[in-house]
Design a protein around this nucleic acid. Structure first.
Lengths: 218, 218
DNA sequence: GCAACCTATGAATCATGATTCACTTCTTGC
DNA sequence: GCAAGAAGTGAATCATGATTCATAGGTTGC
């Protein structure tokens, strides 16, 4: 048997695969999904177009992984906040909304791609999965808050979906490619504060303290 | 001058154009934008593929018109409600949210196409225009409600965008092609009521009456 | 009926970009 | 160094679906 892949080769292969994923991610982060053709990604990664297909069965598959990883990172942040038992539910909701918005505004092209840019159906499926993840994360803390009396009676699933939608929609304007350079820090601060307030108002009972803190989760 | 288009010919031409628009609309309403190829629309309208191009410079242009008309009808309903001076602001918001949700649920495939399905950039632009329209309609009534003290102090633009997003996101699940046949009337009623309540809570001051009426705007 | 000149047709063409594949270039174990 | 086989290459191929265009069929005014 004159050839058998050695661990060293395996490692090099893995590194190339990783470089392709990173290149795809960077391409999306810099210029959006629309700009991310297979050959653009390949040449950015320093490999030939065809080589991409030695590591991924299809473009859709590659980008599903790219989106999955990027979305997971975002979801992890939000989920960590919503399940932080050291805080009362209302503060968790506020901090999670704030983290979501702040991080999106800090990486607008990527956020737009993850949230709203037209993508392959397979990638869209990935997106839907994470939307549900956000919904679930919010739904859990809403449930707790209702049980503790801190939040009004309501269907946590519906309210959670509404919160996710409210955050997404209010951010898509500022994030969209059309809104380039217009976003002064000033606007962003008001936007974040307004969104946090909106979410809290929608769910908290009256006496809820109106947290608009500046805890950073970026 | 042996030929000059007569009014009769003009009328026939206009009728064909209209039939093409209607066919395109019906195709989207029945099977979504993805199914609406130029030839599908043409054959549904009973004309040849090429004939479509005698009335529209491009597919994007045709569908921009289709989306514009359909969206305008929806927006008109919502705007009529939000500007109905015979009602207090909170009831206008509630009725508008309810109308939006109910109408979307009544025509799910079309609603999904108008709200969330991937479309041509030119059509997407049309969609954004109408999103802004909804936002403006809500923003106006929010502004009034704030002035009258019925609503909390807040930035009407941000809250309006959040309301539009909340409605859209919470509806997209039930509307999406994946959610076929699952939607019992029962669920829909709870969803509509939940959404109306969410929107009202988000903006009204505490003493606001919690309207969950069944006024039909379908 | 006829010249002039629209309108309709739908198969062929184009454009885009993903995917393939015949070939070249490494790696490995001996 | 060499044979066996893996990995890399990138130009050619494919797929999809919008768009064009040479041709056929209608209208109009006289």
């Amino acid at each position: 048997m004159p050839y058998r892949t050695t661990p060293a080769t395996r490692a090099r292969l893995d590194a190339v695969r990783e470089r392709i994923v990173a290149s795809a991610r960077d391409q999306v982060a810099e210029a959006g999904y629309a700009s991310a053709s297979v050959s653009a990604v390949a040449s950015r990664a320093g490999v030939a177009t065809g080589s991409v297909y030695r590591h991924f069965p299809s473009k859709a598959n590659l980008f599903a992984e790219v989106f999955r990883r990027a979305s997971q990172r975002e979801l992890d942040v939000v989920a960590a906040v919503t399940s932080d038992e050291s805080l009362p539910p209302s503060e968790r909701v506020a901090a999670a909304a704030e983290a979501f918005a702040r991080r999106a505004l800090a990486a607008p092209t990527m956020a737009y791609a993850l949230l709203a840019e037209p993508v392959d159906p397979a990638v869209e499926a990935e997106r839907l999965t994470f939307r549900r993840g956000y919904r679930d994360a919010f739904a859990r803390v809403l449930h707790e808050g209702i049980a503790s009396g801190e939040f009004r009676e309501h269907d946590p699933e519906i309210a959670a979906a509404a919160i996710v939608g409210a955050l997404g929609e209010a951010l898509v304007g500022p994030l969209s490619p059309a809104a380039n350079g217009r976003g002064a820090r000033r606007h962003h601060e008001a936007l974040v504060a307004g969104l946090v307030q909106f979410c809290l108002n929608a769910i908290a009972t009256r006496e809820g303290k109106s947290h608009v803190g500046a805890r950073s989760h970026a």
